[in-house]
């Protein structure tokens, strides 16, 4: 069973890594909607997968935050990605699997997954 001694070991390991500073302008902020609508639609497993992928790839420039209801409950779980100098990207109807792809394609390689965005979702409805 996991003990707090393991947290100490993790701390020491991370303190060594913290010496390597990344450029602040590379920071990516990922915001997950965590109001009742988001939670009921499955925001927590999306957040869980995001954390797993970020940890697995040691992405130190990604910070994760939450927001309340932004008024598009029918599109929850909603994940917004903010990058310096770029337009915000809003992903809708997210799942853990979609999140994993957003991490590799968008957060790591810089290519937003257009088909998961709110633009693609509303276009599909209008057609």
């Amino acid at each position: 069973m996991k003990s707090l001694a393991e947290l100490q070991a993790l701390r020491d390991q991370m303190k060594d890594q913290m010496g390597i500073r990344h450029d602040a302008k590379d920071n990516i902020r990922v915001v997950v909607g965590m109001a009742t609508c988001g939670i009921a639609a499955g925001a927590r497993p999306v957040l869980q997968r995001l954390t797993e992928e970020v940890a697995k790839r040691s992405l130190q420039n990604v910070t994760v935050a939450q927001t309340g209801c932004i008024g598009i409950c029918q599109y929850e779980p909603v994940v917004e990605v903010f990058e310096n100098g770029k337009e915000k990207v809003t992903y809708v109807k997210m799942t853990a699997e979609k999140m994993a792809r957003v991490v590799t394609d968008h957060l790591v390689n810089g290519n937003p997954v257009v088909e998961y965005t709110i633009g693609a979702a509303t276009e599909a409805i209008n057609q």
């Binding site: 996991k2 003990s3 993790l10 954390t51 970020v54 940890a55």
Partner: peptide
């Protein structure tokens, strides 16, 4: 992320 994962498992 690694700390959050530890806390979750712990």
């Amino acid at each position: 992320a690694p700390v959050v994962q530890f806390i979750s498992d712990y």
